[in-house]
């Protein structure tokens, strides 16, 4: 399989990741394009050095970090209405499911959000996630625990408000 084909295969996942973090499709696509351009620039230097997927996500993470730094205050990025950003006509159920996922992610601080997305959605291994985010594996695991417990509580609370557990 050619490197370009491999790169191409990863685009839907990169787009999904970028969208989940930025909430705006055109910003997400700009970021993915930057990521692809960088990947193309450095493709030759990368022969036989592990999987392409974690490598692409680490480029993506770096781009996100520099973007956040540039924007300085994350809170000013108004979380846009996800519905407006669904670029293809999505079914009502699809839209509802997307909103549920985005609402869930909203409960988490940025650092936990990234960990959870990389592992639970993108299926990356813990060691790869640690390398991508440039943190120790132990930190990945503790963020993962906090993120999962937090969202579990939220989901339970939503399903059975009367029985909501107080921690």
């Amino acid at each position: 399989m050619s490197a370009l084909t491999k790169l191409e295969e990863n685009i839907p996942a990169l787009r999904r990741y970028a969208f989940a973090l930025l909430r705006n499709q055109s910003d997400a696509d700009d970021l993915v394009q930057d990521c692809l351009v960088r990947a193309l620039d450095h493709m030759d230097e990368r022969t036989g050095e592990g999987e392409m997927r974690p490598w692409l996500f680490s480029i993506m993470h770096n781009l996100c970090v520099s973007r956040w730094r540039r924007l300085q205050f994350r809170s000013s990025i108004v979380v846009s209405d996800a519905e407006a950003d669904v670029s293809v006509p999505a079914s009502q159920q699809a839209t509802a499911e997307l909103h549920a996922a985005l609402d869930g992610l909203d409960q988490l601080p940025e650092e936990q959000r990234e960990v959870l997305l990389l592992i639970a959605v993108e299926g990356l291994e813990y060691a790869d996630a640690a390398k991508i985010l440039k943190i120790p594996v132990g930190t990945v695991m503790s963020r993962l625990s906090r993120a999962r417990d937090k969202l579990r509580d939220t989901m339970e609370g939503r399903q059975r408000p009367a029985l909501r557990r107080v921690k």
Binding site: P12, A13, R16, A20, E97, L98, H99, L116, A120, L151
Partner: peptide, 10 residues
């Protein structure tokens, strides 16, 4: 829940 919701994006 996350995978299902975001699958539409991919």
């Amino acid at each position: 829940m996350l995978r299902r919701g975001l699958a539409h994006k991919a």
